[in-house]
Amino acid sequence: MSSSSLSGRTVLVTGATSGIGLETARLLAERGATVLVHGRTAEEARAATDRLVATAGIEAAQLRPLCADFAHLDEVKQLAHQIVREHPHLDVLVNNAGMAAPERHTLTADGNEIAFQVNFLAHYLLTCLLEPALTSEPGGRVVNVSSSLHRTASIQWSDPNRARRYARLAAYAQSQLALTVFAADPRVTAVSVHPGACETSLLPLYGHQGRSAAEGAAHVVRLCDPGVEIVNGAYYDRDERVAPATAATEERTVRRLNKLAGELVGQDA
């Protein structure tokens, strides 16, 4: 991976309190970036920044803890408004926060299946609201941390909450397909990346063995580097650009997903 300096660049990493997100924040900060460290709660975000300062020797001034529970869309809106106000120019948004779908069908207070909201809809809303900061200067980009499991998925257009037929793996895969499709949205230059099966809380979805979270994070950080040219909608399996599932690049699917997501989060597509 290139080790060029990222000094002067500001990056928001969602789900940055553990696993790949925490390691992504560490690697970015070690290369000089100012990192907005998102956590579900203020306590979790502060603990993550304290840990990075204490164990990685990162300057506290490079880290800014922020919080929002992605199971509550109002908190996502508040987070976005805070960032636009305090950081009117944002170089990179890393949409990393994620969860395994629960065993039992679960809806958020907003009425959405919880994995679909946390893994995709919240990131859709956040990205839309951060568009002014990401496009205030040329070169802003979005990196969606997706999954190879998107290839096994289908989006249930008439029942995205999977109320009629729920299976946790199918629900999780649907959220990853949606996140991958969303990278082809033309408003902000974006890519998606499968960082590999890593030793995180999501490992049981993939198997029993995985690489370190730091190895997975390196593939994410590479795509944050302005020296790495990207094409809108591209999909990477670790550091190799490959074709995503066919549905992920279909214009009709992109438009349909934007319409559906906009309706579910109350945001014009």
Rank of each mutant, 00 (worst) to 15 (best):
Q174E: 02
G207W: 00
G196P: 10
L129F: 04
H105L: 15
N258Q: 14
T253G: 12
A42C: 06
P88F: 07
P138H: 03
A60T: 06
A153W: 00
R168Y: 02
S136A: 15
A133Q: 07
G98Y: 02
G262Y: 03
A173N: 00
S158Y: 08
A243I: 05
A56F: 06
A183G: 01
T127G: 15
V228S: 08
H81C: 11
P226F: 01
R164H: 14
V76M: 14
E59N: 10
L260T: 07
L6T: 08
Y236Q: 09
S5Y: 09
E240F: 05
A243D: 15
A178T: 02
L93M: 10
V228M: 07
L264A: 07
Q267W: 14
V231R: 13
Q62I: 06
L260E: 03
S175L: 07
T249V: 13
R168W: 00
N161H: 11
R9C: 12
L63N: 06
Q62V: 06
L177D: 02
G207V: 06
W157V: 07
L129V: 03
D185S: 08
L149I: 02
G139Y: 01
Q156A: 15
R222K: 13
H105F: 09
M99F: 00
V11P: 14
I58Q: 14
G139C: 07
R64P: 09
E137Q: 12
D50Y: 01
I155K: 00
G39A: 07
P65Y: 01
Y124G: 11
R9F: 11
T135A: 12
W157E: 09
A16I: 11
N232P: 05
V76G: 08
G210C: 11
A234G: 06
N119G: 04
V145K: 04
N232I: 00
L28C: 13
L260V: 09
L134C: 09
R26L: 15
R64M: 13
V35W: 11
L90A: 12
V53E: 12
L28E: 13
I155F: 01
V181Y: 01
